[in-house]
Design a protein around this nucleic acid. Structure first.
Lengths: 340, 340
DNA sequence: TTGAAAGCGATACCAA
DNA sequence: TTGGTATCGCTTTCAA
């Protein structure tokens, strides 16, 4: 009874041959039994002997050997970027991962910090993923896509603010967020609107489209849009607040709730009345925004259900070669509170 | 010049045999050249021919075949839990990953949502990782550890609030946070201290040790510690605030800054003076806490540098079999502001 | 119902 | 300096 050996055997890793030997059958039979191969009939007693031998040895099949033999993997590779995903995005990724696992894919995340786009694509290609789902912020070049394709990836999919040429795209179109926030401010009668642009690297792929979304709706009514670079620290916010009145703005869309809170506090400390003198709206609808006074108006984002997307990935893998598809995942909705 | 073929060849994936054929050499030579094998001398002209053939075909080696042949991988597997890591933790993981990649490991993250501990361990074992680093919140049983060991993992390491029997441990001892926060409150003369316990599942592994850390230092001076269950929503916070005075507490350690902000707002709305009647301290030292009035006192956490830990993992892989090691990663420090 | 054997792609030994 | 070849673990066809 050494179920929990103090010093787990350093011996060789058991293979299907070991299982076969112990069960007194051939390796073929072991494979048939453990994979429940329906094209071949094996006696119940043999099945039992094989199963017992396998569990006695603690046998675990060798994924590399299996996929080498099969000629393909069922690996879906998700590169990870270098900045933390928000809770919304994070939950979405996890659910997508579960959905894919339910379809019998092995989902694997692979960081690429410190690798350039093509090195990274090569590193991914070595794993021979059947699909690659690259979130926004992960560089994916046409060359990289070609490398992945040549190495057997049936589907290369981007997941983020904007599509990449030659890949399928699950788009979280951030312009929606900008136009939603700005539309709300316009409705409140504001016409000179600042848009906070975080200076933190890595946020640009989100911030730029939000700005252009804002511009689009503002143009319709001839309102002014003024980009406002801001670092996420009190000093930067203080400096912006200090010159606020010279800007002559009557509203600001602050990129997200965190930046909004930072800026709103700085504006209040500079004696600017919110929302009377300047309206503020964030995005993400964090609980914390509701705790401020005035309560922070925000934009709530919702992502599409992930199971249908897992099914979509599966379809792209099974019927590759179509033209790149684009699917919009993001819906945005203004949540008016007291700050606007 | 079809560097960017519109329809990337659906043909078979090029192998080293294809490279050999194109270069007019044997597969062995290809391997020698591409791996810069120093034990064999190859003429410069042959090297060039091989390299050109490889890049012309877009050849990428097949990781599975390589590791099958080698008898081992250089895969470090990091299971991911189901709740988003904070920015601190997130950055740490990314740096650890980069550090390991610098040591020529392939780091791969693998979600386990919806799998039980032993299923998950089996799934990981199929990849034959040379090391597994399991963050807190990822279930890891002694059986799971045994499965991984038997399948060739040289090092099984936990990374989180508490060690797991039989594995090496990189410990982020959350008791430090609790005792640091509580020590600060005691120093301020408070003696009846509430400790917020989030009801959200998944936070218990962090919350429990923070509580026991609080208890430890409170016991030294005979102070009272009162656990306070709280959900992360306004309703729950309001209910707690409504019965606050019946609790007779003069301070609260609110698990972290987010819970602290939630509770502090509810207390203020209930007419409780902060810090006069009740002192509040959070943890994480978020920027946002500095924006509240009164400014939120907090506990700042610092993690050990990650490169030495990457080196440690490398050492454990190369010299396996020692007794499980424990390393403390977390240091905590009180940041007094206005709320305490 | 079971077994023998080929072969997936890469590497490293041994020969030439 | 280079090439032939056995080998890793597994699946699957073909034979028995």
């Amino acid at each position: 009874m050494s179920q929990l050996p103090k010093q787990p055997a350093e011996g060789p890793v058991p293979t299907s041959a070991d299982v076969a030997r112990l069960a007194g059958v051939s390796r073929a039979t072991v494979s048939y039994v453990l994979n429940n191969n329906p094209t071949v009939r094996i006696s119940e007693s043999t099945r039992r002997r094989v199963r017992e031998a396998a569990s006695e040895l603690g046998y675990v099949p060798h994924a590399a050997a299996r996929s080498l033999r099969a000629g393909h993997t069922r690996t879906v590779l998700m590169p990870t970027g270098d900045h933390p995903a928000g809770p919304l995005h994070h939950r979405f990724l996890h659910e997508l991962e579960s959905g894919l696992r339910r379809l019998d894919y092995t989902v694997v995340q692979h960081g690429s910090l410190g690798l350039d786009a093509d090195e990274a694509a090569r590193a991914w290609a070595e794993l021979r993923p059947v699909a690659v789902i690259a979130p926004g912020g992960v560089a994916l070049t046409p060359q990289g896509i070609a490398v992945l394709r040549r190495s057997g990836a049936k589907a290369v999919i981007t997941l983020g603010p904007q599509p990449v040429d030659g890949a399928h795209a699950l788009v979280m179109d951030q312009r929606e967020v900008g136009s939603c926030a700005t539309g709300h401010l316009l409705q409140r009668g504001r016409r000179r609107i600042g848009v906070v642009m975080p200076e933190e690297p890595g946020l640009a792929p989100f911030a730029e489209p939000r700005l252009s979304g804002a511009r689009r709706v503002a143009a319709d009514v001839g309102a002014l849009i003024e980009p406002l670079p801001l670092r996420y620290d009190e000093e930067s916010a203080g400096a912006l607040a200090a010159r606020w009145r010279t800007l002559g703005l009557d509203a600001v869309f602050a990129y997200n709730d965190a930046y909004a809170m930072l800026l709103m506090r700085a504006l209040q400390d500079a004696g600017i009345e919110i929302p009377a003198e300047t309206a503020v709206v964030g995005a993400d609808d964090l609980l914390i925004g509701r705790l401020l006074r005035p309560r922070l108006s925000s934009v709530r984002m919702e992502l599409a259900a992930s199971q249908p997307l897992a099914d979509l990935v599966d379809r792209l893998v099974r019927h590759p070669g179509g033209v790149p598809e684009r699917h919009d995942l993001l819906r945005a909705r203004a949540i008016p509170r007291e700050s606007s």
